[in-house]
Nucleic acid binder design. Structure first.
Lengths: 211, 211
DNA sequence: GACTGATGTAGAACGTGTTGCAAGTCTAGA
DNA sequence: TCTAGACTTGCAACACGTTCTACATCAGTC
């Protein structure tokens, strides 16, 4: 983490394949390979194992190219996180959430997601660390993650998918739940909470907020 | 940030002046100089400016000595954070918190602290980043910060200093408020929220939790 | 006063994120 | 087909966290 607030190198015209769409087929393919390599390395060895040279090698691109696609390790990891997260959300969008109360449904989706993360502790460590180190230049990717999470919780709250508007108050509650979740994940990643602590802290928060 | 999960180097016997107390006078003095230098550099240039060589130079100790006192940059910053935070809490413990309701009092103390942090954005950036990057080996220092914050909020909640026990539910509420505060600070540090957003998000959380 | 072990110093060295550069390759348009 | 310009590549270089080595100093003990 030599330079947290380093300027992106891409100041020249349109960046190739900065967005998931756009660019030539070869570029989209390169981008995919890079993100795949990132996830693989992160899953194996966590944040430290995601070394730019290693990612470049495994993705079969030059180091310079890697930096052209993702201006920093943080961007790379946050983009990978965003991709995985969005994938997950889309996957879970297809079926209705079980549970009779909003509390039950919210706990269901959050626990489901939490457990998925906990099954790959190294990967989660890498992604959470990156998420927390991100600065302005990654706002877009982070916002994507935030939106995904909000959507999931809102859906669970209402029971039906995309049924009805989200009120101001509900939005506020969702934001707080997200905060608690993030905070718990941080504590878990940094070894200050175990799996049960995470579930419990979210459970308490949801209970207090939904009463 | 070469090695996030690196083992501390100090495996040999009792570390000199790892704790604020203990060690010879010269050691306590060195420790103080190191933390002072850390705060100074962080206040000027943020996380990136806290370079181990620079800290060592400004504190007038050798690089090796710096590492003997603090096994990593993260330890160094978190220790500095803990010291400043505790100082702050002690300072604000002397007078009663103004405000007629728990909500008002909690907002008063949190906003006070938030504004203090915002007056030194670089310093805050450095400290928050370090806080979030910390792993198990810094549990002690982090717990210290958490305890300080909890104490302050609990005091504000009750109005009187250390008056009465904190119930389970109150403790849970305090934890959630802390989570929201941390999360808001992260967003602020990373440029995704401005000052007003921070205050507002805490205000909403406190309102929802204390009803 | 001399010995010994812990502590401190100076500085080289290593690893990894990041940048710079020169040369090759691919693509769209003439 | 040819060419201009964008994109890639391979590699060297740099910065900074961290570790290591060799030596100096200091405190306590005999």
């Amino acid at each position: 983490m030599t330079s947290v607030s380093a300027e992106p190198r891409n100041t020249d015209g349109p960046t190739p394949a900065t967005a998931p769409t756009g660019g030539s087929a070869a570029q989209r393919e390169r981008r995919r390979r890079i993100l795949d390599a990132t996830i693989t390395l992160a899953a194996e060895g966590g944040f430290d194992a995601v070394q730019m040279r290693a990612v470049a090698e495994q993705a079969e691109v030059a180091l310079g190219t890697l930096y052209r696609y993702f201006p920093s390790k943080i961007h790379l990891l946050v983009s990978a996180l965003a991709r995985e997260f969005t994938k997950d959300v889309e996957r879970s969008a297809v079926r209705a959430t079980p549970g009779d109360t909003a509390h039950e449904r919210i706990m269901y989706v959050l626990n489901r997601r939490t457990r998925a993360l906990q099954k790959q502790p190294k990967l989660t460590e890498a992604l959470v660390r990156a998420f927390m180190f991100a600065d302005q230049s990654v706002t877009g990717e982070i916002h994507e993650v935030g939106t995904s999470l909000t959507t999931v919780i809102a859906r669970a709250m209402h029971g039906a998918p995309d049924h009805g508007e989200v009120t101001e108050e509900e939005a506020a509650i969702i934001r707080i739940i997200s905060d608690v979740w993030l905070s718990a994940l941080i504590s878990w990643v940094t070894g200050r909470m175990d799996e049960q602590d995470v579930e419990k802290s979210i459970d308490v928060a949801v209970r207090l907020l939904l009463r």
